[in-house]
Design a protein around this nucleic acid. Structure first.
Lengths: 207, 207
DNA sequence: TTCTGTGAACGGATTCACAGCA
DNA sequence: TGCTGTGAATCCGTTCACAGAA
């Protein structure tokens, strides 16, 4: 049995909401309440969870800490994931500086660039390496995930090299639709794309 | 007849691919070729477009420039959209500095923060205003879209105020599931969420 | 011949509704 | 009584397959 991708894509939302509940000292939660928090129907949540087992108690609901731990294990968030960043321009620097990765177990261990002025620089305790040595560096210290923050023209080539070096997941900040083999995961971070899906609705309301 | 949201969410991808084709001097394209470029089936593309009209010529394909223009009009990308940024910390500064918005017609015209040390500062020709005057500032110079780049604890309150001030679209960089009225669009930009949907598959391949 | 536009068929995800358990 | 877990029913989006136009 394999699990629908939409289901997987919702689990991190549940994790996030449950973490907030732990923070607030809440111990049990029903699918009803969790659903309200996230704008999801209770049935959806119960069905999603049912793909992985039985986590609730009838009449009671779910133990927050228990469910959180289970979801973290399911998603593989109970370990560290190592990442390599390619492109240390303005965007790349912002990514390196981002404090949100570490608490969730994501750590950048390589940073590459082509620009000789940037190579050798130290950013947040990482020394920027020449992108030419990408393959050697990843052979020596492998990573799970590649982060691409290079200009659009260079992005596909960088992705091909990351994949060639064994990376099986790409976080793509470049505004291109990357072509990758079926076994490689890609997620795009593109604020412009997000904005462009909203303007359609803004336009509607306006007339 | 109203159009499925998934369809709308794909149109910006088509726009992006068509822009690249214009750049490369390509004049006509079939649904087949466009699909290969984007990893989408030709039937999907034809069906998506059919919601809005007939843009192709049988036996030939689509005129790239024509289709691009039509899609831009459909999405409302044939005009400027004004935005207000709330939160001018490290992330907020990176957003203001981002060069990708302007070429697509998105312009930040307000920047707000709570920190007295940041208020009054000039970032990229914008003077940071006190978030306390958000309502007045938006009444004087309204915007279409709010960008939220504040800490998670503050995010929901900021979003409520933006919505209260008439904003009908939110680009949310904060790691929370925002609750908004039905007529308000929200899109999240959250790299951690994106990473967390990939680790599940990475874990699989590993064993 | 080529490729669009589109009803019809299909498949997959969401919601319903209820049995079952505390 | 309250809430989970889940088959069944429903809904919705994708794909198929072909008529029709250049």
């Amino acid at each position: 049995m394999d699990i629908p991708a939409v289901v997987i894509s919702r689990l991190p939302l549940y994790v996030q909401a449950l973490e907030a509940m732990v923070q607030r000292g809440e111990h049990v939660v029903s699918s009803q309440r969790l659903g309200e928090e996230l704008g999801v129907t209770p049935a959806q949540i119960r069905k999603d969870l049912s793909y992985f087992g039985r986590f609730g108690r009838q009449g009671r609901g779910y133990n927050v800490a228990e469910l959180l731990q289970a979801l973290r294990r399911i998603l593989g968030l109970d370990r560290q994931w190592l990442m390599a960043l390619v492109g240390v321009g303005r965007l790349g620097r912002a990514i390196v500086a981002y404090e949100g990765f570490a608490p969730q177990g994501f750590r950048i261990v390589h940073a590459f660039d082509v620009d000789p002025k940037i190579i050798g620089q130290r950013v947040n305790s990482l020394v920027v390496k020449d992108v030419a040595v990408l393959e050697e560096a990843l052979a020596q210290e492998p990573v799970d995930i590649g982060i691409v923050a290079v200009p659009p023209e260079a992005a596909q080539a960088v992705i091909d090299r990351l994949v060639g070096a064994g990376v099986r997941a790409i976080l793509n900040y470049a505004p291109i639709a990357a072509r990758v083999p079926a076994w490689v995961q890609v997620r795009r971070i593109d604020p412009v794309l997000a904005l462009q899906t909203m303007t359609y609705y803004l336009k509607q309301g306006r007339e």
